[in-house]
Design a protein around this nucleic acid. Structure first.
Lengths: 126, 126
DNA sequence: CAGTATCCCTTTGGATACTG
DNA sequence: CAGTATCCAAAGGGATACTG
């Protein structure tokens, strides 16, 4: 091809469907839900307790999205009263390593980042 | 024992400041901006051209956020007409590996995820 | 060139009440 | 128990016009 060689990231293409996928799966509540489901399959209200700030509405949306993308499974366990169990799928498990890498990074650099924020905020009002 | 061994992720704590940090830095446009700045320092309108869908407003917001978090640097290179160069910081470079891991994952599993989506969507309307 | 200001619309998300 | 429905407030983001 006529184009010059480009760094790896470029070829990975953050532009199109990858970006959309990550949006679906890295949103506000997904990581916490995933974290919980990695530990144990859970029912709807278990998850609400595990992530106390989430509303039923948002939790439903999050679970549906993760289910649609094949990251979590949903199984109706019994009826009367209906019980539904959510669990992580094999595909969902493969997602764990990159997410952990992200969290490790965040943890490692949070102090540095907080210093950067303070420096920035201070410089603004001077 | 009173507590079973727990997976790593739990101890990493996705709940509080990590989540907020990742929100700041993994938003809609950040990855594309970062990708571009990893390749070369760029000026404002270079970035607009590299990410054609972004508006000036959103690009400004993205750059300010990344700058505040110490991920990108901003330098006024000349005046009349003013030129401003954005570049990735050393801290920003450390962010690259986890992001690449994410993109590699997305790329590797996108077909599988698309099948999952189709299956889900089809099941819904049956 | 590198933004800022304004307007406005769309999306997101919480609170609350209700249902199979 | 596991959601859905409705209402509403706040945030996000685009288009356009303007500025140092």
């Amino acid at each position: 091809m006529t184009d010059t060689a480009r760094p790896l990231t470029h070829d990975l293409g953050v532009g199109a469907p990858h970006r959309e996928l990550l949006d679906q799966v890295l949103d506000k509540w997904s990581l916490q839900v995933l974290e919980e489901l990695c530990e144990r399959p859970s029912r709807f209200n278990d998850l609400r307790r595990a992530v106390p700030e989430v509303t039923a509405k948002s939790l439903t949306a999050t679970l549906r999205r993760l289910e649609r993308n094949g990251i979590v499974g949903r199984e109706v366990v019994s009826s009367r009263p209906v019980a539904v169990e959510y669990s992580i799928t094999p595909l969902g498990k493969t997602f764990r390593d990159p997410v952990d890498a992200l969290l490790v990074w965040a943890r490692a650099h949070l102090p540095e980042i907080q210093r950067a924020r303070e420096a920035f905020d201070e410089a603004e009002y001077r």
